[in-house]
């Protein structure tokens, strides 16, 4: 018996697909029947090969879309190419982001600008474009990947946490503005998750953080991706404007 998949026939845009959580999100959405525009910064053979395998295995369409989040002209071109396909956009996952660890007093203005540009301004603009497409069919689910740092304000995370808090707040406003037009918007706040971003933290900090979680382990990218699936699907049809912490209980 063929089981019905949770996102059969839906079309999703996911940013930051090359690695870590984004990579897992593409896998889970594809397994659940979604066609995907998989956005990444750089074209690599490895990435394209992975998408091909995923798409044939799951009988879905997956198209790589390349642009640098800090280059607004590139972003516009990417959106135009998506738009030109004249398909409904049902799901947007703003996952791409950069991390930065620095004490408040040591944070430089250049870094503050860069982190806010990538983690807040770019997904904000990108979402503006995508919402226009979603409004055509009056339905959609937007999932923004924030961070537990946005809620907890950890030491050394002033800039990163603030950029993710900005994204979180904007998402709540977006949810309030678009709820009656069939578009939901929610936030996932991952805790400490096994990705390349972890390598920016010292072993000591990682261990301490793990000891502070109820589950005493770091999260897997798959854990975040499965929550994205929930929020992208109709399983969460009455949930909007919410922050879901996926952090093992911090």
């Amino acid at each position: 018996m063929m089981e019905e998949r949770l996102l059969e026939g839906k079309n999703a845009i996911v940013t930051g697909c090359a690695r870590g959580i984004g990579n897992s999100i593409v896998e889970i959405l594809a397994e659940n029947g979604a066609n995907i525009w998989a956005c990444a910064r750089k074209q690599t053979e490895e990435f394209e090969a992975k998408l091909l395998i995923l798409s044939s295995k799951n009988h879905v369409e997956i198209k790589p879309v390349y642009f640098d989040l800090t280059d607004k002209d590139q972003m516009k071109i990417a959106i135009k190419s998506i738009k030109s396909e004249k398909k409904n956009v049902d799901i947007l996952v703003n996952n791409a982001g950069i991390t930065y660890n620095a004490l408040f007093q040591m944070s430089t203005i250049d870094k503050i600008n860069e982190v806010f540009d990538v983690n807040f301004i770019s997904p904000f603009l990108f979402t503006q474009y995508v919402v226009k497409l979603m409004l055509k069919n009056k339905s959609g689910s937007i999932i923004n990947i924030s961070s537990s740092a946005a809620l907890d304000g950890n030491s050394g995370r002033a800039v990163y946490g603030a950029s993710k808090a900005a994204l979180l707040c904007a998402t709540k406003s977006l949810a309030a503005e678009l709820g009656d037009q069939g578009i939901r918007a929610n936030i996932i706040a991952p805790g400490i998750t096994k990705t390349d971003m972890l390598s920016s933290m010292t072993e000591k900090v990682i261990n301490e953080t793990v000891m502070n979680t109820d589950m005493k382990r770091v999260g897997e990218p798959l854990d975040i991706a499965n929550t994205v699936l929930f929020l992208a699907s109709d399983l969460s049809s009455y949930i909007t404007g919410q922050v879901l912490r996926v952090d093992g209980g911090m």
Binding site: N226, F230, I239, G248
Partner: peptide
């Protein structure tokens, strides 16, 4: 379900915002 394998201690509002 296992979709929420790393979610614990949370309160999720399901209230239409």
């Amino acid at each position: 379900s296992d979709l929420s394998a790393y979610v614990t201690g949370q309160v999720i509002r399901i209230d239409g915002g």
